[in-house]
Amino acid sequence: MSKPLRALDEAALVLFSGGQDSATCLAWALARFGRVETLGFDYGQRHAVELDCRETLREGLRKQNPLWKERLGMDHTLALGALGDISETALTRNAEITMEKDGLPNTFVPGRNIIFLTFAAALAARRGIRHIVTGVCETDYSGYPDCRDDTIKAVQVALNLGMDSRYVLHTPLMWIDKAETWKLAEELGGPALVSLINQESHTCYLGDRGTMHPWGHGCGECPACALRRAGWEEYVAEKARA
């Protein structure tokens, strides 16, 4: 990983869904920036229960670290129902999750991350923030093209040109897999942070919060659960070998 960024005199806006990746990114930002705000999106997702997990995670982070409590600022939620309205996907419709002919799962919501980052930049402009943090990753993911590093770099250029600004889009997880994401959480906040994210974050595309597995809540079958389970098992195995 690159040398840690520390900008305690600056603020950051974290795209915070309530999932494992965004919760880890929030801790990453709290360790680096003097003020950190969060932004979630309600776009008609089937797993809208993730939005309910956000404040529990924020409160857990406050309790775990006095500095994080001091730095954690406002939370924002934007309603983007139009995105769900135009998306014929298994993430916004009650449909079976399958693989499409193009090799992508039908949970892919076209343009989602591009739209999220555009709205995040607009909010950041109003809040006087230039650092935007998102948990996208192209190392261990479902193949979504808007999670790729090239996409994020292109969006950063477009935002800075179109808004005459100097936004910096941070992707702390871009080149690490899910096991390394759990390890990063441990490095940031120790076992307590790992436990908080394991128990209180939400990943499952079907919104299953009734079943608690060793790796967290979920149906255990959808692509998101499969990635989270595999990453957790590898993380635990590596710790056992250490």
Rank of each mutant, 00 (worst) to 15 (best):
S2G: 06
L5A: 12
A12I: 03
A12C: 05
V14Y: 06
L15R: 10
F16K: 11
F16Y: 08
S17L: 07
G19K: 04
D21I: 08
A27I: 06
W28G: 03
A29C: 14
R32F: 14
F33M: 10
G34F: 10
V36F: 13
L39P: 09
F41G: 07
D42S: 11
H47M: 06
V49F: 10
E50S: 06
D52C: 05
R54M: 14
R54G: 08
E55Q: 10
E59R: 11
E59P: 07
G60P: 13
G60L: 11
L61F: 11
W68R: 02
R71P: 12
G73S: 07
D75H: 11
D75L: 09
L80Q: 02
E88N: 12
L91T: 08
R93Y: 13
R93V: 15
N94C: 09
A95C: 03
E96R: 08
T98G: 12
M99N: 13
D102P: 06
P105T: 04
N106C: 02
F108T: 08
P110E: 03
P110M: 01
G111P: 12
R112T: 03
I114P: 12
I114A: 12
I114K: 09
A120K: 01
A121G: 01
A121T: 00
R130N: 05
H131P: 01
I132R: 04
T134L: 08
G135C: 00
V136H: 01
Y144W: 03
P145M: 05
D150G: 15
T151P: 01
V157N: 11
G162W: 06
D164Q: 07
Y167H: 14
Y167A: 09
V168Y: 00
H170K: 02
W175K: 13
I176E: 01
I176Q: 03
D177A: 07
E180H: 06
E180I: 11
T181G: 00
C204A: 09
G207L: 04
D208A: 07
M212Y: 11
M212R: 15
H217Y: 15
C219Q: 08
G220N: 05
E221W: 08
C222E: 02
A224S: 11
A226W: 07
L227C: 02
A230G: 05
A230N: 11
G231E: 00
E233H: 03
E233Q: 10
V236C: 03
E238K: 13
E238F: 04
E238Y: 02
K239E: 09
